[in-house]
Design a protein around this nucleic acid. Structure first.
Length: 429
DNA sequence: TCTGGGGTCCTAGGACCC
DNA sequence: TCTGGGGTCCTAGGACCC
């Protein structure tokens, strides 16, 4: 019973790096092998990547690091700060290798990619998956698992089994109806890609408990309660590929820069440094994708885990001329900050968000203010970007961002920048 | 002492217009 | 006694992802 106009002929592989951040650290520090290892989020806050040994200690994902530090050390384990320069670089290497296995690769996240395998001369899909695993490991040192099926959602499920059952040797293809049925019946509804906590709870209340149940749920029920997005998930579970591969990353529609501080901050001048720093980062991201922002928002948060008065607020403004010119954005952003700032609170986090992004070439003409693209300001900012690109971030920076930066995030357990900084290159003795 | 950051899409409902 | 209806646009908020 083929559904009209739907595609049931795709072959999609999901390649997912195992415990990615931990694996990156292990490539350059083999002494971490066999031990419980966790990588922490920004500010050394939550655990965001866990080795298998650490998972075996029943330490949950997202848990605050300090709560488990004792347990981890007692078991000979290690906690590490996150080193995104290293992970980003290792990720590009993995993706580079994947390109040789399919002409159509979508980099889905820092540690996952979808590969379209349609029309390739592959006699044994699972064997192909194992080959991918072998070659990626050989060239990058990173272990991966491969799941293959008719849709992204099914490939995710195949990947899950490939990763968790040693018998599959890191690769599983779910192509035949009976195999798919068996896998879906054993997949709890909360493990399905696209079903989060709220939907899982709702579905269970309605006796939909496995992926197989969801696959067979009535269309109108799903459309009504889980909307179009949820219905796509159902079709994907039925083997219809509804979520296309996106090979070229489309430009972002919004850009957020926000971080928690290493300490409580009450002082307006310190908040000004932070906001100014975040605007600088955000504007770099804007220019990188050749966008300008039409709308800007600044927000402040107190510490939600601490007793005491809370204050979470934001202010925003439409920009009279959409721009990505850092000094203009800083000037407006600092005005917004002074608007939203209330003295007497201890702030833990601040941030800035740019939205209404459009291509820099599409800025409407404005007779009162020059478009920065046609302006000497553009030349100046390009020169600054170039210097920072060649000589390193913040070689040239804006005075309002401050120098001391007492508020800046903490990374006490940082590993060296093995791959992106000459002096940190590993040495062979 | 210490609890992340950065995105997307969809819908309901209000404002406004004719 | 009676109090339109339909369309569009925008925004806030809620769901999801890594």
């Amino acid at each position: 019973m083929q559904k009209e106009g739907l595609n049931d002929k795709d072959i999609i592989a999901l390649v997912d790096c195992n415990n990615f951040y931990v694996s990156c650290e292990r490539v350059f520090n083999p002494s971490l092998e066999g031990k419980p290892v966790a990588v922490l989020s920004n500010n050394d806050g939550c655990i965001v990547s866990r080795s298998n040994e650490l998972k075996a200690l029943k330490i949950p994902m997202g848990a605050p690091g300090f709560k488990y530090e004792g347990l981890i050390q007692k078991n000979g384990g290690v906690l590490l700060s996150s080193n995104y320069a290293l992970y980003g670089d290792m990720s590009s290497r993995v993706m580079e290798v994947l390109n040789q296995f399919s002409p159509e690769v979508e980099i889905y996240s820092i540690d996952e990619a979808f590969l379209k395998l349609n029309d390739l001369p592959i006699s044994n899909l699972e064997e192909y998956g194992r080959q991918i695993k072998h070659i990626v490991k050989k060239y990058t040192g990173i272990p991966v698992s491969v799941g293959i099926s008719r849709s992204k959602t099914l490939a995710k499920i195949a990947n899950h089994y490939a990763k968790h059952f040693a018998g599959y040797q890191g690769s599983l293809a779910l192509m035949e109806a009976d195999k798919i049925e068996k896998a879906l019946k054993q997949t709890p509804v909360e493990e399905i890609w696209g079903i989060g906590r709220q939907y899982a709870k709702f579905l269970r209340q309605n006796k939909i408990e496995t992926a197989w149940d969801l696959r067979n749920a009535p269309e109108d029920f799903i459309l009504h309660y889980l909307t179009k997005v949820g219905y796509k998930t159902v079709l994907e579970l039925q083997g219809y590929s509804c979520i296309d591969l996106e090979e070229a990353p489309s430009p972002k529609k919004s850009i957020v820069c926000s971080k928690s501080f290493s300490k409580q901050v009450s002082d307006l001048s310190e908040l000004e440094e932070a906001i100014s720093t975040y605007i600088t980062r955000g504007a770099e991201k804007l220019r990188h994708q050749h966008s300008v922002a039409g709308f800007m928002m600044v927000f402040l948060n107190t510490n939600r885990f601490k007793e005491g008065p809370q204050y979470n607020n934001s202010t925003q403004t439409k920009l009279s001329v959409p721009t990505a010119y850092t000094p203009d954005l800083i000037k407006i952003g600092l005005e917004l900050l002074r608007d939203v700032y209330l003295p007497g609170f201890e702030y833990k986090k601040a941030g800035v968000m740019f939205t209404d992004l459009i291509d820099e070439k599409d800025v409407p003409l404005n007779f009162l203010e020059p478009n920065y693209l046609d302006d000497k300001r553009k030349k100046l900012i390009d020169a600054i970007d170039k210097l920072n690109r060649v000589w390193g971030r913040d070689t040239v920076f804006f005075a309002s961002s401050g120098i001391k930066k007492d508020w800046e995030m903490k990374r006490a357990k940082l590993s060296p920048f093995y791959t992106t900084r000459w002096q940190d290159l590993p040495k062979v003795k």
